[in-house]
Simulated scan of single mutants.
Amino acid sequence: MALVAVRDVVRDVVAELAPEELPLVDGLAVYDDDSVVRRLRRAKPRREPLGFGWGEVVGLLTPVVWLVLDQVAERFADAAVAGTTRKARGLLRRFRRGSRPPATIPSLTEDQLAELRRDLLDQMQQPESEEWTAEQVVDVIIRRLARGADPDPAASPVGPSPAS
């Protein structure tokens, strides 16, 4: 089963919808996934080495996409843990308490992608801006996840079919 890193999907989605935010993605990429999620989830502004305040981050696409995809990765990781034996589950829990490996999302079937699209649209009620809508963001996420670990957009199995 091919896995795709959350940070790779975030980068591709941001590159397509808000390329001006790529320096933010690159700045966050120096941190492990847990640190990035903690930084993006903070409710109160703090002194950040990113060079700008929390107010500037709130209106951006990067935090929305990263946090939503991290939740998706956690859901798949939890499902994988639930499917293991009792003994292995205990080992995995102990492992997860420490620093976890990079967040990943497995290859998904068309049905899983359709279900995920519905879930994401429900979650992303208000990430809209003048540049994008929630539906556009979700469509780009789903299209990127459909490619799986293949970074080549031309290889995407989802999208408009070629004219006959």
Rank of each mutant, 00 (worst) to 15 (best):
T62M: 04
W66I: 08
L91C: 04
R11P: 00
V10M: 04
L108Q: 11
V57W: 05
S129I: 08
V10I: 07
L28T: 07
W132V: 12
R75C: 02
A82L: 04
W54E: 11
T62E: 08
V30C: 06
D32S: 01
P23I: 03
G90L: 14
R86M: 10
W66Q: 11
P63V: 02
L92G: 08
G27L: 06
E56K: 12
Q112D: 14
K44L: 09
G27T: 04
E74A: 11
A73H: 06
V58Q: 03
A15T: 04
G83R: 14
E56Q: 10
F52L: 10
D34F: 07
D119S: 15
D26V: 02
F95L: 15
P45N: 09
A29T: 12
G98Q: 02
P101D: 12
V30H: 11
T84G: 14
A29K: 08
G90C: 08
L28A: 10
V57M: 13
L113C: 08
L17M: 08
L40Y: 04
S35I: 08
A114H: 11
E21Y: 02
G51A: 03
L67E: 00
V68N: 11
L108C: 13
R94G: 09
E20A: 09
P106N: 00
E128G: 12
P23M: 03
Y31T: 04
Q136A: 14
